[in-house]
């Protein structure tokens, strides 16, 4: 079998909430170690699309999916695929920072590895340190690892959530508007972090913010009313959009 150059291939993906058809025939191929931004107006299906990529969509009652999402040559919707395995390999960071309350910073990061069977303290220590370093939080919290995660600022909490996802050594990181609840300085830190993460990981990020998409992504997808209107290298899409809808969105005529 020839390994594809793409990390994720979405083929004819359709998604529903009950009878509401929210994603219609999505086809897109996502390259390894790139940042792909998904943008579009509210309610266009951006979040649903990334939630389909790690099988989080199906957790909503009455939600349905059809089509394929091929990850490392494996269709994640095949019957014999364990969704918990997929979610380990394809991590997710949410819109609002959601560290586990009543748990320390250390326990938050160590949670994933512990759940998946790593018990040795020395290994966990190493994972926690590496993950926090990668998330650019280590220097700020190294002396406070036992403090509750809720004591951190919003921006720090979001980086903690990124560290928590990284602790499982995923291959893909999905981010759902990770900066929308943060102040501009914290948001910039996360954006720089995303660029750095793309050296080792494939990042797919949903964003409301076109400037952000232009700053951090290599590829951009424009979604409108559940359809993928345009998808290509960021520069091309922003400078020479092929579709009239994309152009209207970029120039602020639809939002």
């Amino acid at each position: 079998m020839i390994m594809s150059a793409y990390k994720i291939e979405v083929e004819n993906l359709n998604a529903w909430y009950d009878y509401k058809h929210v994603l219609i025939d999505i086809n897109m191929k996502i390259k390894e170690r790139t940042v792909t931004a998904i943008m579009g107006p509210s309610g266009c299906g951006k979040t649903t699309l990334i939630r389909c990529l790690n099988r989080m969509h199906e957790l909503v009652p009455k939600a349905k999916v059809s089509g394929k999402v091929i990850f490392n040559n494996l269709n994640i919707y095949d019957n014999n695929v364990d969704p918990t395995w997929i979610r380990r390999k394809i991590g997710m960071v949410f819109q609002k920072p959601n560290p586990f309350p009543m748990m320390s910073i250390y326990d938050n990061v160590a949670f994933g590895p512990k759940i998946h069977g790593i018990k040795k303290r020395s290994i966990l220590d190493k994972i926690v340190k590496q993950s926090l370093e990668m998330a650019g939080l280590w220097e700020e919290v190294k002396d406070d690892l036992q403090k509750p995660a809720s004591a951190l600022s919003g921006g720090q909490q979001q980086r903690l959530c990124i560290a928590r996802a990284l602790a499982l050594e995923p291959e893909v990181i999905l981010m759902d508007e990770p900066t929308s609840h943060l102040d501009p300085i914290s948001a910039t830190k996360i954006e720089m972090l995303i660029r750095k993460l793309a050296e080792n990981y494939t990042v797919v990020i949903v964003t409301h913010n076109m400037q952000q998409a232009a700053r951090i992504s290599d590829y951009v997808a424009f979604l409108y009313m559940g359809r993928l209107v345009e998808y290509g290298p960021t520069k091309e899409v922003f400078e020479r959009p092929k579709n009239e809808l994309t152009e209207r969105y970029i120039t602020g005529k639809i939002s």
Partner: peptide, 27 residues
């Protein structure tokens, strides 16, 4: 227990019953 906290655990590949025991009950 907020849905966002449960989702955080599930997105880390935690099964449903482990989410209840190690996250929800703990909180």
């Amino acid at each position: 227990v907020p849905a966002s906290i449960r989702e955080a655990a599930i997105a880390l590949g935690t099964s449903r019953w482990k989410t209840v025991i190690f996250v929800a009950l703990r909180i």
